[in-house]
Measured scan of single mutants.
Amino acid sequence: GAPPLPPYSAGGREVTMKKGDILTLLNSTNKDWWKVEVNDRQGFVPAAYVKKLDSGTGKELVLALYDYQEK
Rank of each mutant, 00 (worst) to 15 (best):
F44K: 02
A10H: 15
M17L: 07
K52T: 08
K18H: 11
V45K: 00
P4V: 08
V15P: 02
D54N: 12
Y66N: 04
V50D: 00
L5M: 09
F44M: 06
K71F: 11
D32E: 10
L61C: 07
S9D: 09
T16W: 12
E60D: 13
P3T: 05
Y8H: 08
E70S: 14
L23S: 02
P4D: 09
M17T: 02
L53S: 03
S55P: 10
G1F: 06
R13A: 15
V36F: 02
D40R: 09
W34Q: 01
T57P: 14
A64Q: 00
V36R: 00
I22S: 03
M17V: 09
E70V: 11
W34R: 00
K71I: 10
D40G: 15
L61E: 08
L53E: 04
N27Q: 10
L65P: 00
A47W: 01
Y49P: 01
V38F: 14
L63F: 07
K52E: 07
K35S: 08
G43V: 06
D40F: 11
A64P: 01
D54M: 10
L26A: 03
G43R: 03
G1C: 12
L53P: 01
N27W: 05
G12M: 12
D32G: 08
F44Q: 03
E14V: 13
M17R: 00
N39A: 13
Y8R: 12
K52Y: 08
Y68E: 00
G11L: 04
A10Y: 06
V62K: 00
T16K: 06
G56C: 11
Y8A: 09
T24F: 10
S55G: 13
E14R: 14
P46L: 03
L5D: 05
T57W: 11
S9F: 10
V45D: 01
Y68Q: 01
L25T: 01
E14T: 15
T57F: 09
V62M: 03
Q69H: 14
L23K: 01
S55I: 12
P7N: 10
D32P: 01
K19A: 14
P6Y: 02
E60W: 09
T24L: 15
A64I: 02
V38T: 15
R41V: 15
A10E: 06
K59T: 12
V15A: 05
G58A: 12
A48D: 11
K59G: 09
A64N: 00
A10P: 15
G20L: 03
V36A: 02
T16P: 12
K52M: 12
T57D: 14
Y49Q: 03
A64C: 09
P3L: 06
P46S: 01
D32N: 08
V38A: 15
K35F: 15
E70A: 15
L63W: 04
P46T: 01
L63I: 15
L63Y: 10
L23T: 01
G11F: 03
N27R: 05
N30I: 05
G56E: 14
E14S: 15
L53M: 10
W33D: 00
L25E: 00
P7G: 08
T16R: 07
Y66F: 09
E37K: 08
A47K: 05
R13D: 14
D54A: 12
E37A: 10
V45P: 01
Q69T: 15
R13Q: 13
L53I: 14
P4T: 11
R41I: 15
G1D: 14
